[in-house]
Amino acid sequence: MNTISVDSITKKFGEIHAVDKVSFEVSPGEIFGLLGPNGAGKTTSIRIILDIFKPDSGTVSVLGGPMTEEKKNKIGYLPEERGLYQEIPLERCLVYLATLKGLEETDARQRVGEYLERFELDQWRKKKVKELSKGMQQKAQLITTLVHRPEIVIIDEPFSALDPVNTQMVKDLLCEERDRGTTIIMCTHQMHQVEELADRIALINKGQTVLYGSLDEIRRRYVADAVIVRALQDLPASLPGVREIIKQNNHAMLKFEPGKTAQDVLQMLVQKNISIEQFEIALPTLDEIFIQVVQGKGDGR
């Protein structure tokens, strides 16, 4: 059974189609990337899943059925628009939000204490939230998302406002959650972050799903007819069966002529006695696929 099933949801705001027949499924224990440029409809889709908005049509199933008040306690949500009560002490704020997720106050207090220590925020626990830096508040929000040990974690732009050290910490935390069996939906436009973490993705553009599947499968689908070669000597200006050589720092990308394969190119290089240190299929980055698809050069699958 899928943890989340989104089936052809549509939502209009006035005349604008924020989400138009979007469908995807999220399996238990995976990190799922919900990607798309700004304004694509990612956040609206998330809000429909969370029952903040009702869809105009289509259905959403969470943990085997429609959203209920009980199921809300099994979800941890970090919205894109971060926010905490600014005028109250950090610990009180986190304990209150944890009790709203169904924890008893004593448990909430204990778990919040553990997380504050882990996130090196324990000396700030009595300080008002407004006295914390943006990064600290971001970490405090993560505590709110995870403190009740949810079965599903939905994070909208998880790495915004984080420095490299804290970005790595969040990545480790998400992997740890996945290992614990938590299903994670990561909603972002930062493709390189998704590449490292996500098992599968859905790419939304202008309210519609334009790409959906496992990350490996999608990258292979968009593979260019090219190889990356690092040779010990300079490559000749032209090579048989190669229509273009693009030199990059210490390697070169060789684009094949139509009908040629990587095997043909490798044989040709060996025949020409070119000493090779590296030879690999040039897989496109998610950024490149993203740009291709968003600019309308994708296959729309």
């Binding site: 809300k72 306690n73 979800i75 919205p79 926010g83 905490l84 009560y85 939000l97």
Partner: peptide
């Protein structure tokens, strides 16, 4: 922006 967390709880 606490509202979004509240309405999901």
């Amino acid at each position: 922006r606490t509202m979004e967390i509240l309405v999901t709880s």
